[in-house]
Amino acid sequence: MQNRVISKKDLAGFVDDLIKTKAAGEVIGIQAKDSKFNFGPLKNAAELRLDYDIALLPPKKYFFPQIETVLKYEFGATPKVEPVVNDKAMCLIGVHPFDIRGLLLFDAVYGGANPDANLMMKRQKSVIIGVDCLTPNPKAFAASMGTAVTDEGFDLMLTDIGNDYFVTVGTNKGDSLIKKAKTKEATAADQEKRDKVRKDALKKYQVTLKMKPDEIPALLDANWESKVFNDKAATCFSCGSCVMVCPTCVCFDVQDDPALNLKGGERYRRWDACMLSEFAKVASGENFREHKEQRFRHRMYRKGKYLLERYKYLGCVGCGRCAIACLAQIASPAETFNLIKEAK
């Protein structure tokens, strides 16, 4: 597999071809939504905005939809039950490295022990065309999480090197796709340009984690009783916004929805949030994380320790979406980890 260089005009042609031929499935791309950006089905290459800072919602929604039907059933003496798996092929264009790291965590959670057909069948059929983030959001801290650049999790990775995009080829699938486009072989000079652009982008991150990411678990281990959790949680609305925008939040609820004609119904799963007050409540009324500071602490431990220890990927990729979404301005894991470290 040889890395390539593609002119911006030819990239547009490549994207338009993908949309027209559906060679890699439905094309989803990052596009402007008022003054912000979000992923959506692409009608043409002109809609694609690879120069964006952050997508409102991470691309996980295409593999782990907000609401997803998992069973359909008909009532009766013996109910008829069918699993529902929507595994249409998709090609996502413009995924930032930190969001790719989020998808890799999903693969570890949903593809490891007890693999989940609903999520993994979509993942297996999908193509990920990433783009390096050169204009990070002011709340992002991916540079200090080591997630601003990735060397895995993509089929193709684009880097804006001026008039052209550098195309890092990640998989054979990506290789065969890009071969259909008009490209040049990347030279050592092109690769130097890519590396410099990436390095310069790291300096643009405004929020810094004041430790190495692999120091977070030990920091948390030593600070279960930290006052920081209480101080921060004091103004928490328990609204769950931080979780709803998070690329690494993997939890869900399962609910039944009987049809209006009462002949059958569906079972669906939908995003759930450990910051919501009833997340750990059992039917008897016992709530194992009744207080918001317990929930706040749990989220921070998931981000900084639990997921890492279980799945080898940190539960935070430094995208900053939680910090953007949080009305109380308490959600940034970097800020909490820094405060705990400083309080020591």
Binding site: P83, A117, N118, M120, Q124
Partner: peptide, 13 residues
């Protein structure tokens, strides 16, 4: 991601 999955293996079934 090498395992072959099918809907019949749905964890929810």
């Amino acid at each position: 991601m090498v395992m072959q999955l099918s809907a019949k293996q749905s964890l929810h079934l």
